[in-house]
Design a protein around this nucleic acid. Structure first.
Lengths: 206, 206, 206, 206
DNA sequence: AATGAATGAGAGTTCATTCAT
DNA sequence: AATGAATGAACTCTCATTCAT
């Protein structure tokens, strides 16, 4: 019976995950969740008190492993380069693995305090983890660096959702790219001279 | 009379801007928009055909000057550093100037084709503008660089909305930071050795 | 000025006639009436107190001449045949002449007492006029005869509205047909035997 | 359960029948239908997709048996007189039996294609059935005859709805009257001479 | 535990009518 | 007299939630 409960619980979360993920909170109806989960409408309420609660549970489950897994992976590497690559890979591949489920990202309701608190806390913890990596390397502005890096990863992640033919290889390539860019800057892919000189004065440019 | 019409039109857009911006599309009621604009419910519909139309108009006005202004500013600088700083300042200050209006970013409906098309096109054009800057400097991966930079700026922008005491100076500082980080990488604020060596083996660390 | 007022008054009635006539009471908007009359929305209310009043006025004008003209025409004929033909022609041609204006017949609101009273009275008077013709000819059931005749004419009238190619000649033909049918019965167009006998050699059927 | 569903379905149809019938489509509110049916507003929409659908369903149920029953009854009689009496009785008694439900006739919306198509088809089929009776008797103008007869019956039917004390006997009497009038014409109740001669000693009138 | 019929508050929208100009 | 921007009551319909079975 416990397994039955658990099974339904999971089925609802899975269904909600897919629907909230692709349609957002407001576009998703509880009746659709029930239908996709293969149960009756009323049954959803035996497992989740309200639509908001369900959304929160879905979000929780989605974020749940994210930070622990990240911490685990970070333990095994020591150089900044390695750590940043681990963060980038984790961020991108985590969503790559869920891309069948989550085509569009969540659009959450604004008026559910518990949910907003959870999201804020999740972001805070993620930020702290990335900041710590920066701090360990002696960075002067660890917070801004962490924000910047997460921003870059979030944007690169978008392609996973928007481009149909996106492969795991593409995700890995982006992860490496992000880490490289972050450490070495655009200089890595540019000739140094071009950064500071004015194009008009250049003569070696094609 | 023209100014009267214009006045109401603007009042509605302003009210909607604030409410959609802070509450999102679904949390905002047309009656609230009317109330905040100081007019009757029905009047809103004299100026905007539907809630979706209003949302689109708000979004349009918000995006309107952004790209043209950016192009203008980019004309006046030639080095990559200067261009990236211009982009970052523009991105951050544009939202800084609007921060009274937009507390949270838009949460748009998923099912309004015209709106989605507009948003997609806006993003595309912004991307193209940033990509061109990268290409002009001979970058090998202009698209990924552009995405990364925009991602960084978007994330840094969040603080404008979330932190009450955020100042224009903070915005400028972040803009410079973003450009510097992007060009020189985290190396600019780190000791080179820390990037590639493994902490365990280090001994010069304090 | 009187002529100006009169002109607008008429223009509104004409516009309302056409719109109420083709779209019905509820499907017609006051703004449409104003637009078709070439005036502003508010102006309609200078001439007619409400939508119901306007509808009543339109109906009144439409019915107005009907009965007087009928009485006039009836004066000039004495035989029942002539009178019935006059009634039928009048009924059908009256609507034929207005067919450009009235594609569909009125769908009036049910809750306007004055309108309902007017309609009832009009019908009553029309009935009385037709009944009198029947009585004058010594009919035993003048009321039922009058009702029947008017019913026949109303139905035949429908074709005027529904058939695009309906001509005045068709209207006249139907008028003659109706009068003939009413007086002589279907016998006029049937072989007498067929009325009471069974078409195919029957004779024992009740 | 099937009977419960059926019960609500019927209750809604009954309520709508009465309200649409007496008030027309536009005067009737869905909330009134719900209230009269003894259920909640939302429940109506579990059984009927929209107000138009409900109206169509009411109309359909009202027309449903009409034609089949008529065909059945027509099979059992062979003379024109018998057939016409059957048609008239059917027409009048059908509405007599429903008179508790339908005080006034329907006023349908003009813009619901499915409804208009249904009504047109119903009328067409009824016309065909009556025309066939005329044709079988060798009538030269079966269509006009059919129209005329139906028009007569429709008008006589009105009394059922308008007169409170109308009895089934009255309906039967009118049915016989209509059939008789249709076959024999007004001659049946008039002295032949009165048809063509002037009641009061006239002879010179055309 | 599971159902799904029933609920009803609340949303977007329309449009007859008013009234300041 | 004429305007048309503004109003707001009133409508249809949705959907999260409940509860008798």
């Amino acid at each position: 019976m416990g397994s039955t409960v658990s099974h339904k619980h999971t089925a609802i979360l899975d269904a909600a995950y897919e629907l909230f993920g692709s349609g957002g909170f407001y576009e998703t109806k509880m009746s659709e969740v029930a239908e996709k989960a293969g149960i009756a409408k009323g049954t959803v309420y035996l497992y989740f008190k309200s639509k908001e609660e369900l959304f929160l549970a879905v979000t929780r489950r989605d974020c749940e492993g994210f930070l622990e897994q990240l911490e685990q992976k970070l333990k095994h590497c020591s150089s900044l380069q390695a750590k940043l690559t681990v963060i980038a890979s984790h961020h991108l591949l985590y969503y790559y693995e869920r891309k069948q489920h989550t085509k569009l990202f969540f659009r959450a309701p604004n008026n559910h305090p518990e949910l907003m608190a959870f999201m804020a806390q999740f972001m805070e913890e993620y930020m702290q983890a990335v900041m710590k990596v920066m701090q360990d390397s002696g960075a002067r502005e660890p917070e801004l660096l962490a924000e910047s890096y997460i921003g870059t990863l979030d944007r690169l992640k978008m392609d996973i959702m928007l481009r149909p033919g996106f492969t795991e290889e593409d995700a890995r390539k982006r992860a490496d790219f992000a880490a490289g860019l972050f450490i070495h800057g655009a200089l890595g892919s540019l000739k140094e001279a071009q950064v500071h000189t004015i194009p008009e004065e250049e003569e070696d440019k094609a």
